[in-house]
Structures are given as structure tokens and as C-alpha cells.
Computed example of a mutant assay.
Amino acid sequence: MRVAVTGGGTGGHVFPALEVARYSREKGCEVWYFGSLRGMEAQACLKEGIGFSGFPSRPLYTLKSLKGWLSLAALLRSRARASRALRQWKPDVVFSTGGYSSGPVVSAAQGLGIPTVLHEQNAIPARTTTLFQRRAFAVCTVFEGVSKHLSHANILRTGMPLRREIRSLASGPRERDLIPFILILGGSQGALALNEAALGAALRITDLPAHWLNVAGKGAFESAFLSVEKLGLKDCFEVMSFLDAPSMAAAYSRATLAVCRSGAGTLSELAAYGIPSVTIPYPTSFADHQAANAAEFESFGATQLLPQTGLSPTTLADAVRAWLDNPERSEDAAAVLKRWDRPKATEDIYELLTSAASGASN
């Protein structure tokens, strides 16, 4: 079976697509990644030894502006190039994790009659899912609440295909520190608001012994590190610019609590490890989907949602203390997160790809 994979621009789309690609290759499939020239997928594929074809994609903006029309023209050119590449490689099925780079590929595949399987990561569907769901073989989802926004008849909640380095430690025994371990995640680019609030929160709860690890992002690392030194927190507050997958898995296995944005990948990883959280949704995410993601977790007691407009050192310190002062609340959250998690997401998606490809050949 030949599996074409697409999705990208950011790691939230690329990592799940790569995990399905890796698994498909291990099952004996030929795999090729179709993505954007401006995203991170080309370098990621090179590292994994997966073939890659790139197109000059860009996000689609409103057509009320010149920028929007230029973006649309670029997408149409990319669709034509993707169509030629797909006709040449002849995949049996196309798997898409979304993102602006996937649109031209999915559109071209459906125009050629190639079965497509879409993966919608968030609680509010992205443009690509909304546009292409009707002609897809199936739509895979992560959040339970997204189905009400979709009209496709074949919606399957598979969960998120996490990187195996992350998934592998999730099923094993957790390494617990003697004092609470608080993990701060601002995303790959960091989040200045989280960094500043976390430092202030740590100062306000020094009466409660805890170790803080802030994965601040490469752009914010230096300022966060200098602030720790200036505030005299270096004994309890550690700053890293980035953690690779094995190091992130090790941090998750120690974490008592996470303070983070509410992207689908981050929340899925927290669920795999049963880690409760304080979530500060990224306020300008498309259709406010991060707030919807966090709201689903909040509905079953797995997170405390703290809007960025209400974020301060004091409010964050109060939210952190509320978790640390109530171990039973954390235990209940861990249990419900484990039930929400879908450990076999990658395998289940592969089975769907097999069904889609075999259905087209019959």
C-alpha cells in the first residue's frame, strides 16, 4: 500500500502525521510526505528518512484584502503541483492532519478520486476539515465535542497519534519527586505571558516546596533565565529553551501539574500521563479553538481554565496552589484523563487507511 501523508506548517500538525507515516512504513507500506516549503516538515522528513515533496503554500486569509487574493493564487498553484505529484506517485490513500499546507494536497487527491482520511485535532474544526470532510472516507477526531460541528457520516474518535518517544513512557510507572514538580509549557515558540506569570507565581508560593521547570521556547529563553537569576529562584526554578521527545517524556513522567497553552497535542500528551493542568488558551487561535479544547478538559475536572485576560502572578499562584493543596482532586483528574486518552490512536488510524485503500480498489 502506498500512503501519502500531508499536514504541516507547525509541529502540532507535523508530528502526528510523521508518527502515522513511521508506523505505516513499519507495516510495509511505501510512504511519501507532501507538505509546505515554508514549514518544518521538510527537515523533519529528512531526519526520519521519509521522502518529501514540498509546495509553496501559505495560510488563506480573507479575500477582502490583496493579501488574501495572493494567498488564494498561491494555493491554486500549489494544488496544480500537488495534482501532478500525486498522479506521478499514485498513492492508494492520503492521510491529512490539517494545516494550511494540507489543503492543496487533499483537494488534489479528492479531485483525482484518491481516498482521503482527515484527522481533526481540535474541538473546533479547522478550515481544511470543514472544506473537505464531505468527500473524505473518514474524519478522525481527538475531542469528544467536535462531532457536533461536523456533518460527515463516518466520524471516528481515534485520539491523537503521539510520538512514540512520548507514548512509550506513559504506560509505565511514573517517577515521582519528593516535592511537587510543576511543568510550564508555552509551546515551541514560547509564551511571554506564561513565562512572566510563572516566575511571579513561584515567588508567591515559596512557602510550598516545589520544583518548577519552564520550557520557555528558544526566543524567550535568555530573558527567562536572567529573570530567574535576578529574582533568586535558581534553586527551585529551572529554565530550558527546548526539550526533545525523550526529555519531554521524562519531564511528563515526573510532573505533578502542568501550566500550559491548550493546543491539542499538549493536552493529548497530558492525558496520556494523567497530568492535571492550569490552561491558558492562546487568545488568537483560529475560531478560539484552544479555549474550546480547554473547556472540554475543564468539563470533566482535568484542568482549571485561566483566560489570558485574567492571567497574573497572583491568579496563577492561586490556581497552582488549589491543585497542590488537594491531592484527591489531582487523582480524580488523572483517572478521567486516562479514560479520555486513546493509546492506540496510531494503530487505529492505520487500520482506517487500510480500509480506505482496500475500498477504493474493490
Rank of each mutant, 00 (worst) to 15 (best):
H211E: 11
K27G: 02
E296T: 04
A258S: 02
E269N: 14
V320L: 06
K234R: 07
T6W: 00
S361F: 03
G190V: 04
L324R: 06
R163K: 12
A220M: 13
T129R: 01
R176E: 11
P283Y: 10
V31H: 00
L305S: 01
L213N: 03
R342G: 02
Y100L: 09
S83K: 06
R22H: 00
A250P: 05
S171R: 14
L169Q: 05
R127T: 14
L63C: 05
L194Y: 04
T10R: 06
A264G: 11
Q88P: 04
M240D: 11
V146I: 07
A42Q: 07
G159A: 08
P125N: 12
L233D: 10
T309V: 14
H149E: 13
P313V: 15
L75F: 14
A250C: 10
G28Q: 11
E165I: 01
A17V: 11
R127E: 13
I280G: 00
W32M: 12
F137S: 01
F181V: 04
M160C: 09
R167Q: 13
G359T: 02
M248T: 04
G200K: 02
S268H: 08
A170I: 05
L257M: 11
T129V: 15
S78W: 13
A287T: 11
G99F: 03
P307W: 10
L75N: 03
P327R: 07
A295Y: 06
R254T: 05
A291D: 11
L194E: 01
F15P: 00
A295V: 05
K218G: 10
F137A: 12
F34R: 01
I275N: 01
L70P: 04
G145P: 09
L213Q: 03
A44Q: 06
G145I: 13
V146N: 13
C45H: 01
S268C: 12
K344I: 08
A357T: 09
T130F: 06
A333C: 15
T97K: 05
E328I: 14
F242G: 14
F95D: 00
G113R: 15
Y61H: 12
R134N: 08
D177G: 07
V5P: 01
I182N: 01
L337N: 15
D332F: 09
D235K: 15
A82K: 00
F300I: 13
S102D: 04
W89G: 05
T303I: 04
H119W: 08
L231F: 14
R134F: 06
A345G: 00
L192F: 10
E41G: 01
R58C: 14
E48N: 03
